[in-house]
Nucleic acid binder design. Sequence first.
DNA 1: AATATAAATGCAAACGATTTGCAAAATGGA
DNA 2: TCCATTTTGCAAATCGTTTGCATTTATATT
Lengths: 142, 142
Amino acid sequence: MNKLKDIESTLKNQGYKLTGQRRVIIDAFEQCPDHYTAHEIFEKVKAQNANINFSTVYRNLELLCKLGIINKLNICSGINHFELKHNDHHHHVICLKCGDMQGIQLCPYSELKNKELDEIGFVPVEHKFEIYGYCRKCSKEN
Amino acid sequence: MNKLKDIESTLKNQGYKLTGQRRVIIDAFEQCPDHYTAHEIFEKVKAQNANINFSTVYRNLELLCKLGIINKLNICSGINHFELKHNDHHHHVICLKCGDMQGIQLCPYSELKNKELDEIGFVPVEHKFEIYGYCRKCSKEN
DNA sequence: AATATAAATGCAAACGATTTGCAAAATGGA
DNA sequence: TCCATTTTGCAAATCGTTTGCATTTATATT
């Protein structure tokens, strides 16, 4: 059972077409250990398919987000990053010096009933947890 | 002991001048129960001082961030919000429908030594925790 | 395999938030 | 009050992202 095939059938089932551009974008994510910016995706994909356009990349990133295939990570830098949505729940540490972002398993939050959320009537759906600090390399350099 | 006076002397101590524009920006934050976008600050401030410019607002928001007087909150919507840095540690809930953002006291993370962070050699400095979901108003409407 | 139709693409231009260069104005110490 | 320095306003540039539209493509149907 191939992840790529799963994604392709998700697209088809929802009435979206499987274009060459989509295939290379999905393929780039398959080969991505962590996350890409839209610009990185564009570069990766252009290397495979000379004729792709930036707006096509953006439109497909948006689509893949909508279908729950990828996640948009928007961190302090202001530049969006995208990652394949895996089954594992994880968060990120982000280096304040070099900007590098790594996934971590640590999650301090469990979605038990919470008194404060109940009081303000807020219904949680998902959460984001980020730790900012210094990565090994940058903390050594200081 | 006035918070405004504290901020003014922080500016002076660091060699920055206390201009009319800075005064109204700080004043707007003093009167702000939670957070503003740069655009909201601009509108508030323009109501006090007809001759302020957007770039002045941005330059001063950046300065106040650098001096640790305000925080920049960058949430999923992509629009930056700014809030006075108070002594209280808090996080935010953000409505997926209307975009409203409220502060919450709930913080599931305590910066104890963490095995996973140690393993990757990451030195935490600060963290951000956000819960996305539906606010009271929007969850009723559904 | 040829066709029809709806969806997707490329292109260029628009967009919104933010940043910049520069000349003019304002601040605060001497 | 004068001067050096900082700060401002303005307009233009920038960056990431989105959009309108004509053309192309994928897929279901014949």
